[in-house]
Simulated assay, not measured.
Amino acid sequence: MKQGGPPDWWYSDAPVPLGARMLAAVYGRLVALRHALYRRKFLEPQRVPVPVVIVGNIAIGGTGKTPLVIALIERLREAGWNPGVASRGYGRNDITTARWVDKDTAPADGGDEPVLIAMRTGAKVRVDRDRVAAARTLAEAGCDIVVCDDGLQHYRLARDIEIDVVDTRRHGNQRLVPAGPLREPVERAAECDFRIVNVGGDDIAAGFGEWAMRLVPGEAHPLEGGRPKPLSMFAGQRVHAVAGIGNPERFFSMLRAQGIAVVPHAFADHHAYVASDFEFGSRLPVLMTEKDAVKCRGFSDSAFFSIPVRAELPEAFWIALLDRLPPRGVAA
């Protein structure tokens, strides 16, 4: 079994190995140099002809960006926008080639998260390691606003709104990688326009200046097709729970909160599944995240179910976000 998860010291008081601290110091100097080049105008962000909303995080690891992106697309549409999504497409086989992604794209070609976003929203999705090129292509294709998935550190793309997403682990030990989970110093989060805390389904209050996001599970969808089942049908039963996301425990806890007896199977984020990964030794229902399910349809059977989640945020957040955007049709 391939287990996922960060090093123990990222989210605990465990001592950080010397080698990790030394590498973090080198990485920190590189990050500071890059910031200085943009701050002093030696490097210039490139603007595209439509507004750009960045959804990202300071910390490495799954914090719930994809459900937020899906919710953002839906809310922008309700407000009259035609959003498109720019993504690097992490985990795809050929990251050098830009391409369109739709619901039928193989995850190995488009990346698991872009394929999931395309399936859930039907929005135009463009994967390209050059986010500026992706955003321009989306604008040329008729999108009047671009949502950039996981692009907070891609400074070459000028942005109108930045959203930093964390979960209840916050920024861990507040050290830079590999000594900690941070891609940038913790102070960078304060520069973002909105700070979202993924509290899962827990009754946890966000801190000052933060917005709480709750992930609400939907019904269990059979991967082979057919009518979905309420999660309550699995209450009191043992199931194999599969999660290849940045924080697998969040998925397992969500199922336990529904009264389901979880046999957890954590895989590395963006894991490329094969049939042998599911040789668990017992015939039980297999419940997995949507992100995992898009990679398992080729060898699933009647025991496999996908559990979608819906991101819920306060109405005041959506009002504040939409208020920050320019009028539709007006370049930012």
Rank of each mutant, 00 (worst) to 15 (best):
E219C: 11
R29F: 05
P248G: 10
A320T: 06
P7I: 03
M213C: 03
Y273T: 07
P314M: 06
G91P: 03
G200K: 12
D13C: 09
Q46F: 02
R195V: 13
H154G: 02
I163A: 11
L325H: 09
A71F: 07
P327A: 04
G244S: 02
S276I: 01
W10T: 03
F299Q: 07
T66S: 10
M119C: 10
R75V: 02
L157H: 10
R131E: 03
E140V: 10
V263N: 15
G200N: 13
V48Q: 08
A179C: 07
E249I: 05
P107F: 01
I145M: 09
T168P: 01
V199E: 13
R169P: 01
A220E: 04
L284Y: 12
G180M: 12
R238F: 13
T96R: 14
I196C: 13
W81F: 03
A241T: 12
M254Q: 13
P264H: 13
L37M: 13
G142Q: 08
R227P: 14
V53K: 09
D130E: 00
E44I: 14
S306C: 08
M119P: 00
R170E: 12
R238P: 10
S306N: 07
A268V: 14
V309G: 14
F278S: 03
A158K: 10
L152M: 14
T66A: 03
I54P: 06
E249K: 08
L43P: 07
T168Q: 11
N198G: 04
A158M: 08
S87D: 10
E187G: 12
K2N: 15
F251C: 06
V31Y: 09
P228V: 13
E74W: 01
A141Y: 03
A106V: 05
V286E: 11
A316G: 01
G180E: 09
E312I: 12
F280N: 11
L30P: 00
L68N: 04
L43W: 15
P178A: 01
R183D: 03
I204Q: 15
D277L: 10
S276G: 09
L116I: 05
D323W: 09
G226V: 13
A311S: 07
R159V: 04
H271R: 00
A118W: 04
G246S: 07
G122H: 02
S302M: 09
L313I: 09
P45W: 01
V239E: 07
F251M: 01
P314L: 04
E78L: 15
E187I: 06
R175P: 02
A71I: 04
L287W: 04
R156I: 09
E184T: 02
P178V: 02
Q174H: 10
F317T: 00
S306I: 08
C148P: 01
I245G: 03
Y155C: 00
D203Q: 14
P114K: 10
K41H: 15
R170H: 14
A268W: 00
E224T: 15
L284M: 12
V166E: 11
F299I: 07
A261R: 13
Q237T: 13
F234L: 12
I70P: 09
A98D: 10
L138C: 08
P45M: 05
R75Y: 01
A98T: 07
T105N: 05
T96A: 15
W9Q: 00
Q153H: 09
P285F: 05
R256D: 11
R250D: 06
Q237L: 14
L68S: 06
G111Q: 06
D203W: 05
V216M: 15
Q3R: 15
Y155K: 10
A118C: 11
Q258C: 14
A139C: 08
